[in-house]
Design a protein around this nucleic acid. Structure first.
Lengths: 102, 102
DNA sequence: TTGACGTGTAAGGAGTTCCTTACGTATGCT
DNA sequence: AGCATACGTAAGGAACTCCTTACACGTCAA
């Protein structure tokens, strides 16, 4: 099992969208594919990346595969962002904001 | 100015490392490059991605360029992860965790 | 003014991502 | 058994990432 870094896994909008759908509960692979403009195999490949990052889990039910959200790896991302909270909450960022919109 | 998505900007470990260094205060481009195994232009290109994502700001001081952290865009990432907090804090994830480590 | 310094950009190439279509495989239905 | 269903995987190609070396340009110092 080739593992994928969480940060890479969430980098693609389609994969974040898959996670969004799974918030409402498990979904069959085909149903997930149906929600996207891209082909079914493309979605399947995104699901693999999410699985390798531990963000979704797969349950085989007969010939179907049910995908479940597994948010645990996001905890690390949340904690990483929190290390910067003091910066975006203070005025330390103001210089940056000014320079960004000249 | 070609903008870069924040999620893509933070996907690369080297760029997160640059941000980590900038937590301690502004740094000159050359000093940043000195902290990395890769070449100076490579770091410069990572800095561009961070700048395009609004995560760093550049201040020209004579022939130097000082890079400042601008954490504001991370706020959105933080809030995105928080939408999943209820999942990693509850037992909803347990199925996922079990299936991940069979 | 000449040369060193600090830095971004161009060019190029190996590797990766992300899509497509075609195929393989297991399960279920009659 | 025979065929449809639900899905993953293989193959292939366009586009992008991420590194390198070579170069360009503004700034400072003698």
């Amino acid at each position: 099992m080739t593992t994928t870094d969480v940060y890479e896994a969430i980098a693609h909008p389609a994969r974040r969208q898959v996670m969004e759908v799974l918030r409402d509960g498990p979904r069959r692979a085909g149903d997930l594919a149906g929600s996207f403009a891209m082909s079914r195999p493309a979605v399947s490949q995104h699901l693999r990346v999410l699985r390798e990052a531990g963000l979704v889990a797969e349950v085989r039910v007969g010939r179907e595969r049910h995908y479940h959200l597994n948010a645990s790896p996001l905890r690390a991302v949340n904690e990483w962002t929190k290390r910067y909270q003091e910066f975006w909450e203070s005025r330390l960022d103001e210089l940056g904001r000014i320079l960004d919109r000249p």
